[in-house]
Design a protein around this nucleic acid. Structure first.
Length: 684
RNA sequence: GGGCCGGUAGCUCAGUCGGUUAGAGCAGGGGACUCAUAAUCCCUUGGUCGCGGGUUCGAGUCCUGCCCGGCCUACCA
């Protein structure tokens, strides 16, 4: 099994984790079922972006990627993502395999040479990928557009068509240069690929439709697989001065990482990548479908390696129903999450949302809190914690008592749960498991162990009740083990019987000792969620500065450390001068949002009730619906225009304005006073 | 414009091959309990299954038209 290789140019964030957790669960499930499975991954280390970043930071690419790899591995470990091998595409094994693939492609007659004209940055001495060029859109004249298309009018063009193009890195005016590139003639594999994508359920059905409708319905284009120097990567042996494009060597990294594992444990790579007995499962996001379902099978076929058994494709992560946003603090890095919250929460939450399809999944923090607290702590862990105290002094009964069929029922549910895991329908698996948990707690309730505990004569009964409850708990822990390895380990410790195999869910445990109960999982503290979001905002403010200096802006960056864009001011020039008296006419006040609600018929408006302290309330309709949810506003302080003439709007009378910056739509940033300000205070 | 996916309770979703009175969890309301991390248990409110047409003895489910939302595309990969 593989998860996509994270690029060595940035930290792991919650969006990445959807995939690594999804894959980790699947691998752990396969291992629990008794299969020999390995999870390999690696850092994706090559490309122009890495080269440029290393240059800016004044160190070698090798130092940079080693540093990033340490961070990535630390973050993955923090989320209990357990790779059998975590390598790097810059490893010697990968170079050797790249040569094998290359030789095979040459021998198959799939490589051709063609001239490519590209923009070239004379100062940096490098060719510029489309996204490294910015300029004015040739169609609508919007400034500051990337080299491939305009996000204002949607026009697509070549980077050379931009008006006043400039290099994003140096600000230099690029020139057009021509270089020889090597291409793979993928079209020669067209028939094979058309067949492969359709057979044996290698891909989800909607992906097959997509590929057939978008790519396989016409000749496949040649794939530009080389980049001229300077480039950070592997130089192509029979084309000196040219390097394999990062997307050529990245997937080969899956095999290279496997090879490293093989060397370490004394296995043969042939048995894993050239054997009909081995299945290869790739887990990827929907953004890299093309590479994994067309190029990659084509390369594997040509070089004689195993084709993927299945490519499992997932959607993206949204937070609170919107794209992850740095300014809102919903762009949460793995490292920051771990400073505040338990990784088990996220593993379970993602599992409860992940289905077999490509839909995006949403992280909603209220739901997150509710699911973890009520499902995991309230239902599952509680089962153990409410009985373990009684049980630890007497151990489990030597025979499994009559439980009214509960254990058997849950044991029989194992097949359906396993099938759901197998199909990557973890949401279904979690539902099935929670149904079992819902049956277990009423048993304890009805058996009343706390009553039995008061009567020494009923000790046997008490022990039986605890034996049932703890066995039902253990069964749940086995079923949840792929998702919650930590809980499984603690369950194993409690009953002095490590959870290692799915079959352990089928037989009750009897006659063993019960260790003193220790907390297995604490409830989610919503304050920690808030703190995590706040810290994410701060981090990104710092980071944004660094990034802009290194990449986005031009030469003036050297003198202006903040390097803010002049665009907002250009868009909305200063208003005519006003006097202090003019200003004093506007009465700005600190106010607290005490209520906020959607206005169902309104597209843009939220209805806010502001408190100016004491009994003074104002109703304000604010055009911020796209940027804020009512719930996140309640309680916060804002600055409002308190003496604005009331205005009758379609949905009621608005008695003021809330101040905010931004262009409108989702780009709205409410002003907040620093802490200490009190509702009703005037802003001078 | 084209493609894909979706629209079921306040929220998140399940609903198998078309088959009885459409379900769960959470949230809300009422009660019980005290072993447990304010956990748990019982009862309960809540639905025009997006809208219209069609097929059928019977439609949340199949067909069709439309509306809404998301993603992907628009001759880039």
């Amino acid at each position: 099994m593989t998860a996509a290789l994270p690029y060595a140019n940035g930290p792991i964030h919650l969006g990445h984790l959807v995939e690594y957790i999804q894959t980790d669960i699947w691998v752990r499930f396969q291992k629990l079922r008794g299969h020999q499975a390995i999870y390999v991954c690696a850092d994706d280390t090559h490309g122009t972006a890495i080269m440029l970043r290393a240059r800016k930071e004044g160190r070698s690419e090798e130092e940079l990627i080693a540093d990033m790899q340490r961070q990535h591995q630390r973050d993955f470990a923090g989320f209990q993502i357990e790779f059998d091998n975590y390598g790097s595409t810059h490893a010697p094994e990968n170079y050797e395999l790249c040569q094998q693939f290359w030789t095979a492609l040459r021998q198959a007659g799939l490589i051709v040479e063609k001239d490519v004209s590209q923009l070239y940055d004379p100062e940096a001495g490098t060719f510029l990928a489309d996204r490294f060029v910015k300029g004015t859109c040739p169609r609508c004249k919007s400034p500051d557009q990337y080299g491939d298309n305009c996000d204002k009018c949607g026009a697509t063009y070549a980077p050379a068509d931009l008006i006043e193009p400039r290099s994003v890195m140096t600000g230099a005016t690029p020139e057009i240069r021509t270089a020889r590139h090597l291409f793979v003639q993928l079209e020669k594999l067209h028939d094979f690929l058309s067949q492969w994508v359709q057979e044996d359920e290698h891909l989800q059905p909607e992906v097959v439709n997509y590929l057939l409708g978008h790519f396989l319905n016409e000749p496949l284009r040649d794939w530009d697989i080389s980049r001229p120097a300077p480039y950070f990567g592997f130089e192509i042996p029979d084309a000196p001065g040219n390097y394999w494009y990062v997307w050529f060597d990245a997937p080969i990294g899956y095999i290279a990482s496997t090879w490293q594992w093989c060397k370490r444990v004394g296995e043969s790579l042939e048995c894993w990548w050239r054997s009909p007995d081995t299945e290869v499962h790739h887990f990827i996001g929907k953004d890299i479908i093309y590479f994994h379902t067309l190029f990659w099978p084509g390369m594997l076929k040509t070089a004689g390696f195993n084709l993927p058994t299945k490519v499992h494709i997932h959607g993206f992560l949204t937070v609170g129903g919107a794209k992850m946003s740095k300014s809102k603090g919903t762009f949460v890095r793995a490292e920051i999450y771990l400073r505040h919250l338990d990784p088990s929460y996220l593993r379970y939450y993602f599992a409860s949302k992940l289905g077999p399809r490509l839909d995006d999944i949403d992280l909603n923090f209220e739901e997150f809190e509710a699911k973890v607290n009520s499902d995991l702590v309230g239902k599952v862990v509680n089962l153990a914690s409410r009985c373990a105290k009684f049980a630890s002094r007497m151990g489990l009964s030597s025979r499994y008592p009559d439980d009214g069929g509960l254990f058997d029922h849950a044991a029989r549910a194992g097949d359906a749960i396993a099938a759901a895991y197998e199909q990557c329908d973890y949401a279904r698996a979690m539902r099935l498991i929670m149904e079992l948990a819902d049956r277990a707690n009423p048993f304890v309730e009805q058996a009343q162990p706390w009553v039995l505990a008061k009567d020494p004569a009923r000790e046997e009964e008490l022990r039986d009740v605890c034996t049932v409850a703890l066995n039902l708990f253990r069964q749940l822990a086995v079923y949840l083990a792929p998702v919650l390895p930590d809980l499984a380990r603690k369950a194993g410790d409690l009953l002095a019987d490590p959870i290692e195999h799915w079959q352990q869910s089928q037989q009750p445990l009897v006659g063993t000792e019960v260790q003193p109960f220790q907390h297995m999982l604490t409830r989610v503290n919503p304050k920690e969620i808030q703190a995590m979001i706040e810290e994410s905002k701060e981090q990104d403010a710092e980071q944004a500065v660094g990034e802009h200096v290194s990449q986005e802006q031009n030469a003036s960056a050297d003198t202006d450390p903040w390097n803010d864009s002049d665009e907002p001011l250009k868009k909305e020039p200063l208003a005519p001068e006003c006097t202090i008296d003019d200003f004093m006419k506007v009465d700005l006040r600190v106010a607290r949002v005490v209520a906020a609600e959607e206005v169902p018929e309104a597209r843009k408006l939220l209805k806010l009730t502001l408190s100016l302290g004491g009994e003074v309330r104002k109703t304000v309709f604010a055009g911020i619906k796209a940027a804020y949810k009512p719930d996140e506003l309640v309680g916060r302080l804002v600055v409002c225009v308190a003496n604005l003439a009331p205005r009758k709007m379609r949905f009621g009378v608005s008695e003021g304005m809330v101040t905010a910056a931004g262009e409108g739509g989702e780009e709205v940033y409410l002003l907040s006073p620093d802490s200490g300000a009190k509702p009703g205070q005037r802003v001078h």
